[in-house]
Design a protein around this nucleic acid. Structure first.
Lengths: 320, 320
DNA sequence: ATAATTGATGAAACCAGTTTCATATCAAGC
DNA sequence: GCTTGATATGAAACTGGTTTCATCAATTAT
């Protein structure tokens, strides 16, 4: 493989001039520029990117931390990030954490090691104190309300969107409302639980812990929820389900067991994924791809720390 | 940030000795080893990975080329690759191609530039002649039968598995069989079409081009298929659907439009994804995660070119 | 007693680029 | 005629590691 010295020799110029041509610097005469280009073509030259990275202290790689790749929500999020990465000539390094803290730390370490230029955390595990130790090494952006932190964020106001959904169900005469959530901890979940409890308090409804179903990520978790419902004496009349996938699982299961939706059980999804449209699930639309794009853009802005709140939209269909 | 020279000075040794400690080389006395370790701790030292990469000519990164991330099949495949990557201390660089050849070429170029150590192509777009130009730069592995090529592969025998499925449907008295496929081109699709045509020929059935539905990737594509079916005069009595997702879309749509499954239309999926289990879809099980793991392992074996055929298994449920 | 091997160490070359600095030419401004 | 600034170029320093090679002491083999 030819290196920059070979090209310089071939073109009869200095390495500096070759470097100038490579980086489109001004002050290179047209003849020498042409000579360099010709030499590069002749020897099928490719700059060694690792040397470029070492010199520039930059990698054109952005890390993406998500719990699972195989999930429509995170799939769409990565898609949005990837779209923007392509436009900016960046590549993505993927960290699938399975919600293991160690995996997230590996990503932070790569940032520290300057192996990636920035880090997008799709779903955070580490405490803020841990994250803070790394903010000096490069931009870290998160997909949750981080206005109080020194990291950029694009987020849904989950308190508000949960409140909107709950009010909607309430207007439809539902008082026994339960909800399905992914992780029980995590700031997004905390916001949602807060909205839930405030709603209950406002309407003088007692909090029933068995109405909260956690670990709901995938289609098949919906089946588990219906299984649980059938064992309960008192069941909710409506479920707020923080993933259309899970909502679809619940709906499919209900149909198979002849539970009438929405009469016996109202279901409200989240995201407005294609499956929600096809199965006519009432849902809250979240522009996940757009969130991904925004997150990537923020990961490139190393100087400013911005916060981008994304609005949601209620989509009325047939399951409420 | 401290560098290796600072550490050497601090520990009172040469950079060589520090490098030896970093790489666990023999021939370093216990005292010096300890002094170096202490100095590294004191100055919170981290080696600059780009310098390491430049020196060693290795990146510990493997590229993964897939058309979409947001798809259960490729999600699972990446999950398998990611699992094995974690165990081997490798990171993944993701290339979402949307089936654009240029994206795949970018990945090949990164291999050539030594920016990644190897490349897993989940679904190939480029011609073999193009791929061949890059095999000298690092291991390339594909997820299709490549026994005739100079690249490693882990693959399903799609001819055989399609034949198995077709024979099964035939035993169940189906003669009007159609199939749904993702891309029309691509070697996996070609194998399947060959099996389909051979089956028809064997049973003296005419080939009906309207019985082949292409561009079937997602849940919502199933709706399109049912829409098409309702406009057709002569419809198939059974459909072989190369993705459980699409099969689930078709089944859901059929239920909504009161098309009886399997009496009016038999549906046979592929993959055995969770959704197939929940919706009781008869399917051909494909161990996608295991395929992903195998692909990654092959991407590390730079010396040998191996071919790994994976067996499928028919799962009988209620849609045939 | 001498030669060969093993252990321990560091100087310097090397990986392949970028960037700083010094220098030279030429035209414009005063 | 002299200063200033834009254009053009290359030598050398720099990024931060790894690896080769030379050196020397302490064993071990002949």
């Amino acid at each position: 493989m030819a290196n920059i010295k070979d090209i310089a020799k071939l073109a009869g110029v200095s390495v500096t001039t070759v470097s100038r041509v490579l980086n489109n610097h001004p002050y290179v005469s047209e003849e020498k520029k042409e000579a360099v280009r010709y030499a590069m073509e002749q020897s099928n030259y490719r700059p060694n990117i690792n040397a470029v990275h070492l010199s520039k202290g930059k990698t054109n790689l952005i890390g993406v931390v998500i719990p699972f790749i195989n999930h429509p929500y995170f799939g769409l999020l990565v898609e949005g990030i990837a779209n923007e990465a392509v436009s900016n000539n960046y590549k993505l390094v993927l960290f699938q954490t399975n919600y293991e803290e160690e995996r997230e730390l590996e990503a932070l370490l790569m940032l520290k090691n300057k192996q990636i230029d920035g880090l997008v955390i799709g779903s955070r595990i580490c405490h803020w104190e841990v994250i803070k130790e790394y903010i000096d090494y490069g931009p870290i952006v998160v997909c949750e309300d981080a206005r109080e932190q020194q990291v950029a964020s694009t987020y849904i106001n989950h308190y508000e969107s949960f409140s909107i959904a709950l009010e909607y169900l309430h207007r439809k005469a539902h008082n026994e409302i339960g909800y399905c959530i992914g992780r029980k901890s995590g700031s997004n979940s905390t916001q949602r639980d807060l909205a839930y409890r405030d709603f209950l308090a406002k309407n003088n409804i007692d909090y029933n812990p068995s109405f909260v179903f956690s670990n709901c990520f995938k289609f098949e978790d919906g089946v588990r929820v219906v299984d649980l419902l059938t064992t309960m004496k008192k069941t909710p009349s409506a479920l707020l389900v923080t993933s259309d996938q899970v909502a679809a699982g619940i709906l499919t299961c209900c149909r198979e067991r002849n539970i009438q939706v929405p009469h016996q059980l109202a279901i409200m999804g989240f995201d407005n994924q294609p499956i929600a449209k096809i199965m006519n699930i009432t849902t809250l639309e979240i522009p996940i791809v757009e969130i991904g794009r925004s997150l990537f853009r923020q990961a490139l802005e190393s100087e400013t720390v911005t916060h981008n709140e994304i609005a949601v939209k209620l989509i009325e269909r047939l399951t409420v």
